[in-house]
């Protein structure tokens, strides 16, 4: 299959400049990648909803606040 000449001509206008970067990542970049890597999670991903995720994060804060208020009172 040959290239479509007109499409080829138009596509060639989209040039991309390549920055200078080394082959090896710095230790900081490796650490960042490791932190962002997906870890195994006990709950199947399909079961986690946005609301569920918010609850997991918010409930400990609410409980802590409630306990603090109760202790003050």
């Amino acid at each position: 299959m040959e290239k479509d000449r007109e499409i080829d001509k138009l596509l060639k206008k989209y040039t991309v400049e390549v920055p200078d970067f080394p082959m090896k990542k710095s230790k900081m970049e490796k650490l960042a990648n490791w932190l962002c890597e997906k870890a195994s999670f006990p709950i199947p991903e399909e079961r986690i909803t946005f609301k569920g995720m918010v609850c997991i994060q918010v409930i400990p804060i609410v409980v802590s606040l409630a306990v603090s208020v109760w202790m003050i009172l």
């Binding site: 989209y14 991309v16 390549v18 920055p19 970067f21 082959m23 990542k25 970049e29 990648n33």
Partner: peptide
């Protein structure tokens, strides 16, 4: 380095991701 970066960049339009992918590929 350059051809792989250009390939990934034209697919994703993301400089950082493109560099990351090239480094991981090597």
């Amino acid at each position: 380095r350059a051809p792989l970066f250009r390939f990934i960049y034209r697919c994703t339009r993301d400089d950082q991701l493109s560099m990351d992918v090239v480094q991981d590929a090597f």
